[in-house]
Simulated scan of single mutants.
Amino acid sequence: MKGFRFGSTEGAFYILPGQDGWEASYGNDKLGEFSSPQQAADDLARGLTCPHLSEVDTSTLEIPEKLSDWEIVHV
């Protein structure tokens, strides 16, 4: 199985297969579940609102919307 990783200046973001779709995470914090990895990348790039990231606006981290710009990781 494959997932996706993006290393930002604030740390690594992951989009990995979850129980009911795809799960985005930052460090050890889960940021939410999504129907597709593309939806997760879009939400992270545009600015995901999450209690775990109250001090970080993901839209300022230059997270790419295109999954082809993310690193592929095998899980």
Rank of each mutant, 00 (worst) to 15 (best):
residue 1 M to R: 10
residue 2 K to F: 03
residue 2 K to P: 00
residue 3 G to F: 00
residue 4 F to G: 00
residue 4 F to W: 14
residue 4 F to N: 00
residue 6 F to C: 01
residue 7 G to H: 09
residue 7 G to P: 07
residue 7 G to M: 14
residue 7 G to R: 14
residue 8 S to W: 05
residue 9 T to G: 03
residue 12 A to T: 07
residue 14 Y to T: 00
residue 14 Y to G: 00
residue 14 Y to F: 15
residue 15 I to A: 03
residue 15 I to L: 01
residue 15 I to P: 02
residue 16 L to A: 12
residue 16 L to D: 11
residue 18 G to Y: 06
residue 18 G to I: 06
residue 19 Q to I: 07
residue 19 Q to K: 09
residue 20 D to T: 12
residue 20 D to C: 08
residue 22 W to P: 03
residue 22 W to K: 05
residue 23 E to H: 13
residue 23 E to S: 13
residue 23 E to W: 04
residue 23 E to D: 12
residue 26 Y to T: 08
residue 26 Y to L: 04
residue 26 Y to A: 12
residue 26 Y to E: 05
residue 26 Y to H: 11
residue 27 G to C: 05
residue 27 G to V: 12
residue 30 K to N: 13
residue 30 K to I: 15
residue 31 L to Y: 06
residue 32 G to M: 09
residue 32 G to K: 15
residue 34 F to T: 10
residue 34 F to S: 06
residue 34 F to G: 08
residue 34 F to M: 03
residue 38 Q to R: 14
residue 41 A to N: 13
residue 41 A to S: 15
residue 41 A to V: 11
residue 42 D to T: 12
residue 42 D to W: 09
residue 42 D to K: 12
residue 43 D to A: 15
residue 44 L to I: 08
residue 45 A to G: 13
residue 45 A to C: 15
residue 48 L to Y: 07
residue 49 T to V: 11
residue 49 T to Y: 11
residue 50 C to D: 15
residue 50 C to L: 05
residue 51 P to S: 12
residue 53 L to H: 14
residue 55 E to F: 07
residue 55 E to V: 11
residue 55 E to W: 13
residue 56 V to C: 05
residue 56 V to P: 01
residue 58 T to Y: 15
residue 60 T to Q: 14
residue 60 T to V: 09
residue 61 L to R: 04
residue 61 L to I: 04
residue 63 I to C: 03
residue 63 I to E: 02
residue 65 E to G: 01
residue 65 E to P: 01
residue 66 K to F: 06
residue 68 S to K: 11
residue 68 S to C: 02
residue 68 S to T: 05
residue 69 D to G: 02
residue 69 D to R: 08
residue 70 W to V: 06
residue 70 W to N: 05
residue 70 W to P: 03
residue 71 E to Q: 13
residue 73 V to R: 04
residue 73 V to D: 03
residue 73 V to A: 02
residue 74 H to E: 15
